[in-house]
Design a protein around this nucleic acid. Structure first.
Length: 193
DNA sequence: TATGAGATCCGCT
DNA sequence: GCGGATCTCATAA
């Protein structure tokens, strides 16, 4: 898919673009994952967003053009990835939280020994591991690859709820998942330390 | 099954 | 130096 078409697919308010991503497929090499759970982050206006305090070296990708991959490292061991949706200069992005492996499941099973099929891409850090995405892929063009986004048909039934794991942000119902799908992550409220 | 704490490192302040 | 958009394992019920 041409980059301009992909950008058009992601255009509009991020809380509307996010549910549109459900059912789309992210592909990296031989592995493809169909998204079943995402979260919207609305740039500088959103206290839960990395971009809330302005542009830094880490989140610079969020401020770039849409249809790019924003990867970041967290909690010492995990990588999470977002799809940048806003136009150049607007740091809106969608966090990919969970999905189901639709291709290359043998590869993923070897990457994640001891995991059941349902758990292979259940949770943002696992999703990245399943796809083999690392910090190296920060800023990758989702139209050009090596990681690509293939728009699909959103499910008929989508649920919304509060976002997971945020501290200090007012709850906005900007988490979207395919109703009843087994691969969505369990809701764990943020814990005070 | 549910709950709790440890692991572990990068970028910002 | 601190805190984090998390995961996994251990222990308890």
């Amino acid at each position: 898919m041409p980059a301009s078409e992909l950008a058009a697919f992601l255009a509009g308010p991020v809380d509307q673009a996010a549910p549109r991503l459900l059912g789309s497929v992210v592909r990296h090499g031989d592995v493809a994952v169909r998204l079943t759970e995402v979260e919207a982050y609305a740039g500088p206006a959103d206290p839960g967003s990395h971009a809330f305090r302005g542009m830094t070296k880490r989140n610079a990708t969020m401020f770039g053009p849409p249809a790019h991959l924003y990867c970041y490292f967290t909690y010492g061991m995990h990588v999470c990835c977002n799809v940048v949706t806003g136009p150049d200069g607007d740091p809106s992005a969608v966090l990919l939280r969970a999905g189901e492996v639709v291709e290359g499941i043998e590869v993923v099973r070897e990457r994640r020994l001891g995991s059941t099929d349902r758990d292979l891409a259940r949770g943002p850090a696992r999703l990245c591991r399943a796809l083999g995405i690392g910090l190296d892929h920060d800023g990758a063009d989702l139209a050009a690859g090596p990681v690509v986004l293939e728009p699909g048909t959103p499910p008929a039934d989508v649920s919304t709820g509060p976002r997971v794991g945020l501290r200090g942000a007012p709850e906005r119902p900007w988490r979207f998942w395919e109703t009843g799908h087994p691969s969505v992550s369990a809701y764990r409220p943020a814990k005070p330390r």
